[in-house]
Design a protein around this nucleic acid. Structure first.
Lengths: 192, 192
DNA sequence: GCTAGAACTGGCCAGTTGGCCAATAGTGGA
DNA sequence: TCCACTATTGGCCAACTGGCCAGTTCTAGC
């Protein structure tokens, strides 16, 4: 698929594909070597995923122009991608013309997202704000620990743990801790 | 991406791309109309996913030669794809020559999988075989329903629900239903 | 200085959970 | 045919849950 994309881009006289990489690690090496005007980065990759790669590239080259390509149509990773420093996010269903324009826009400093992306972000739950402590508790809930076990690990009373759990349920609109964990996965508060 | 792939395939004198589709629904329509020698089917698609499409095609055309393409490197869908009647499963990281050979093999009746696929299947938790009923229960656990509510919805006694939950906990090695849901997310039994 | 929120603690209680025991019926493979 | 597995039902019980009430302390913002 990468080769096919490279061929198509090279067929366009406006573009030259200077390098390709099969995974995140070699992608970073290639980036350092070639420092391309615009980088197309797949979110789903073996070994190191696109978001991690984006973070590393952005840390070293804050002005890098990177367009992220995603094949998931859920858009779970849009926010993360943009936060990691991507200058754009496209679904792989984008038509050739959309991709072409996105690359050009990225090169000239624009911020590009698939037309559907805005909708996806809007649907995305408006940042449920759990406190650091609550996120901590959530990690333990996920592991199947009960309130007493959590209390012992955190050196707090079971009443406090209960209070935190109650707060989590209220904020996430969850019926019980099980649904709370499910919602946390949906919202990206917990990672698979 | 699809256009890029089609271009590449058309550039090979052995192949003619007779049709393309942007989503599952139109893919099925196109399939019925053109009945191609070999079909390339993406697992991740908007609206209807590739596995569902595969099932529908296979039901109507059991002899269809369909190669499924996956961009996930987890391979959660390999088994489902083959069970749905796909004659092959390739990661999108496959090199052009691999894809070419896979198409030819598919056409001549072979069963093709990416070299990595066998490994992936082997790594896949062999114990994690939840029954259809258990998966069903899992959906309700995720929604925060308690045993009684699940029982009423499924028209079974609360004892039966309890037995199913107990079975899920045992199979997933979960301490409670909350951890079970978390593990289900990790293993792809539940989708975000 | 007041207020809002987070983190912490406590008691009480109905309801739920999950483990243990045991049983019946149907399906599919060896 | 027998065995393994699933789906179903039941009782019993200790433990856990989540909601209700009530507090204290501390920090951050107006």
């Amino acid at each position: 698929m990468r080769k096919a994309l490279a061929n198509m881009l090279n067929a366009n006289p406006n573009f030259i594909v200077v390098a390709e990489a099969a995974d995140g690690r070699s992608g970073i090496v290639k980036f350092q070597k070639f420092q391309p005007d615009v980088t197309l980065l797949d979110v789903a990759m073996p070994e190191m995923n696109g978001i991690e790669v984006m973070n590393l590239i952005h840390a070293e080259f804050p002005s890098a122009r990177v367009l992220m390509l995603s094949s998931s149509y859920e858009g779970q990773d849009i926010v993360q991608a943009l936060k990691a420093g991507a200058c754009g996010y496209l679904f792989k269903s984008a038509r050739p013309a959309e991709l072409t324009m996105a690359i050009i826009a990225a090169h000239s400093g624009g911020r590009v997202v698939s037309p559907e992306v805005d909708t996806k972000i809007a649907k995305r739950h408006p940042t449920t704000v759990l406190s650091a402590r609550e996120i901590e508790i959530l990690q333990f809930l996920r592991k199947g620990l009960n309130n007493l076990e959590i209390s012992l690990l955190l050196c707090i009373s079971r009443h406090t743990t209960k209070a935190h759990v109650a707060s989590i349920l209220r904020k996430l609109h969850a019926a019980d801790r099980t649904e709370a964990v499910a919602i946390a996965f949906e919202q990206g508060l917990l990672k698979v």
